[in-house]
């Protein structure tokens, strides 16, 4: 039974990381139809800033970890802001393919920069003992890292929902996801909201970078690649532009992946998730919570 709960915890934890990346991607795509390939690299890039922060502090204390998480989040947001401002904004007039290509180029450059700076080999992330261990929750040992990532994802979800539902900017974003042309027609600058959403996506990717290190304990230049692919799958299954859908899909994907990998055979989880995606697209192309005609 302990194994079951352990896998449940890791599954939710992986799902939480997917959500951190997917939530931003989903809003970005929903608002501007841009599928960002740069977000995996953003995750990696900020993760390395977290490792650097930890090394700068020397001792792996809880305070240092908190600082590393904050630094990583801010680095992700700052890089995303610059990428949008310098590279994506000039592309708005040029169509979706150019924007996609630009994010791919940025992703390549960021990953190459990390490889040049830190080498291709894994860099370990020093963790304080109280985070690398497990704690007793109602008689079941749960890794602290799992609790941290899940809590972060839930907090981000609550924050994003409050932002979307309660603020004027959020209202514009929601309207833009629904129908960007109509919002533009009403004289509202959707590009400005897009810059904001892209930066929020970057902040979330930066947070995911630090938390991915808490989960896997070492960074490689291709850390973000796998997360990016599964984040894509999560947003398609959840329904593009729907955050609650993304949350549920992230948990579903994380859990099915971990359970199948453990109870069937290594790698079976990945195949199961891909099968889920194919089935979903055939039976319900708009995803769990998406609206018909939005992505097709």
């Amino acid at each position: 039974m302990d194994t079951f709960f352990l896998i449940l915890a890791t599954g939710l934890s992986v799902g939480a990381l997917y959500y951190l990346l997917a939530s931003g991607l989903s809003l970005i795509f929903g608002l501007m139809d841009v599928l960002s390939f740069a977000h995996g690299a953003l995750l990696t890039f900020s993760a390395y800033s977290a490792i650097m922060t930890m090394n700068w502090f020397g001792a792996a204390s809880t305070g240092a970890l908190l600082a590393a998480i904050v630094v990583s989040t801010l680095v992700g947001g700052a890089v995303a802001f610059l990428v949008e401002w310098l590279f994506l904004r000039p592309m708005y007039a040029r169509g979706h393919l150019s924007q996609l290509l630009v994010t791919m180029g940025i992703g390549l450059v960021l990953i190459a920069a990390v490889t040049i700076g830190f080498g291709p080999d894994p860099r370990s992330m020093p963790l304080p003992d109280n985070v690398s261990g497990s704690i007793d929750v109602f008689g079941v040992l749960i890794p602290v890292s799992a609790l941290v990532t899940v809590a972060a994802a839930l907090l981000l979800h609550a924050g994003l929902m409050a932002f979307l539902r309660r603020t004027r900017h959020g209202l514009i974003v929601r309207a833009g996801v629904e129908n960007a042309d109509m919002v533009r027609g009403l004289g509202i600058d959707v590009a400005k909201s897009f810059a904001m959403v892209f930066t929020i996506g970057g902040l979330a990717a930066g947070l995911a970078g630090a938390l991915a290190l808490v989960y896997v304990r070492a960074g490689t230049p291709h850390l973000g690649d796998t997360y990016l692919i599964y984040a894509f799958i999560v947003i398609v299954i959840g329904g593009i532009g729907s955050l609650p859908g993304t949350l549920i899909a992230a948990a579903l994907v994380g859990l099915s992946q971990q359970f199948a990998n453990h109870y069937l055979t290594g790698g079976a989880g990945d195949l199961l998730v891909l099968a889920l995606l194919a089935l979903m697209l055939l039976a319900r192309p708009q995803g769990l919570f998406g609206k018909t005609g939005r992505i097709v």
Binding site: L35, F232, I233, L274, V296
Partner: peptide
Amino acid sequence: VALRVENIAYSMVTLAFAQVGAVAVAR
């Protein structure tokens, strides 16, 4: 299967199929 959807969904399905191949090879 893949052509039943269009645009970005098509890209995603094809990505998923290719990923199955990559997983099969890596594992």
